[in-house]
Design a protein around this nucleic acid. Structure first.
Lengths: 217, 217
DNA sequence: GTGCCTGCTGAGGGCATGCTGAGAGCGCCG
DNA sequence: CGGCGCTCTCAGCATGCCCTCAGCAGGCAC
């Protein structure tokens, strides 16, 4: 789990870095809002701990900008006790939770874990054509309830066909989309259609002579 | 979870009652300090939400008296924003957390849960996938009831995989999230998958050639 | 029927992918 | 300082995936 800590109090940051590392997190640090935004924009963190009072850019700004950039990493805001900024503002702006300083370290960790747990995983939709079901996320394929194991290439091919179900898809188009280069030789496609048929049975992929292939319900 | 709400603003109380009930709490209500103290003294609540400004007895009084009576139910204080009473006073007096009005409902719930969690009364967040059980809080792992000792890195890897159970997780993604830098060389991941398998047996982490790894029930 | 074209398939080689053992670096503890 | 545990790199090796090729079957045009 990668965590980004954005705060300008060196002592606190050092403590958090040590503590969170000991808890098994990989910790990155930024000391001002600008730098924090920069790092966070790479979208490589599982959570962000973000102070409100920061040099160069305040916490609200950072969150707002992050969301505008379509980065949805969960954010745990740290607000100062004096209440100059209102807590509700942070939540309005798109933070997922907040904590007022001072706080106990265990509380921070507990909140952080809650945040990570809560984050819903966005999944691409499941493709269904007749008896065939293909889940891109889990890379699982079932045919009439029976699980089928496919190799990467086979899966890519079937996914493309199912994505364009009911349509006749040309070999060249398949060659272009499922395979890298735009090639002339489309025999690979035929070979792999053969593999699919061997694993799924004859009736699934239909040949349209002179045009291409089709999967239909 | 039984919660006692002590406040004299009827509208707020009604809203809290409905909201907390919906969140799965059993809610009792008192409209003044005296009645609140009376109910709370029975020591049958898991938490108390207590306003500071109350008829007949103010919130500080209630907490002080409760602690004097050896009732240590966690108290979440609600203080008005105008700051006539200082927040710190509440904490000094024996409250466990505080919230300034107005507040968002989700915030209240979040704080309440944190409070309960801190008391150790709430089930810690445990990841379970098939025979595998991983408790991030205690960092303990069991496999079919048998305890397994993992190093920090191994645990982080397993945690990430279990967190995304049933999904195929790419090596690069693992490298990015479980390890610090965003690196090209993903051999470390393979090595650590090997370590996990040595400790957990073959069947736990499945290899999906060309795509990554998966743990599934 | 004859010839041609399209599509299917079995065989096999090359090679990327993934796994593992050995070992170096390093921090920690006695 | 020596030993130990953890982390990570590296190189060798096995597996099986991917793709090419050649031969064959069957449809279509004439």
């Amino acid at each position: 789990m990668r965590v980004l800590v954005v705060d300008d109090e060196r002592g606190l940051v050092r403590a958090l870095h040590r503590g969170l590392t000991a808890e098994g997190f990989a910790v990155d640090v930024a000391y001002d809002g600008e730098r924090g935004l920069e790092l966070a924009s790479e979208d490589a963190y599982d959570a962000i701990v973000l102070d409100v009072m920061l040099p160069r850019r305040n916490g609200y700004d950072v969150v707002t900008e992050l969301r505008a950039r379509d980065v949805w990493t969960p954010v745990l805001m740290l607000s100062a006790k004096d209440g100059e900024y209102d807590v509700a503002d942070g939540l309005d702006v798109g933070a997922d939770d907040y904590l007022t300083k001072p706080f106990a370290f265990v509380v921070l960790v507990s909140r952080l874990r809650a945040l990570l747990r809560r984050q819903g995983q966005v999944r691409p939709p499941v493709l269904t054509v007749g008896e065939l079901v293909l889940d891109p996320a889990t890379r699982r394929v079932t045919h009439g309830g029976e699980p089928v194991t496919l190799t990467t290439r086979e899966l890519a091919l079937l996914e493309y066909l199912m994505h364009h179900a009911d349509r006749v898809v040309g070999k060249v188009e398949l060659r272009d989309h499922v395979w890298d280069g735009t090639g002339e030789d489309v025999n690979v496609v035929e070979v792999y259609i053969g593999y699919l048929r061997r694993k799924l049975g004859r009736g699934v992929v239909e040949t349209v002579r002179g045009a291409g292939y089709r999967v239909a319900g």
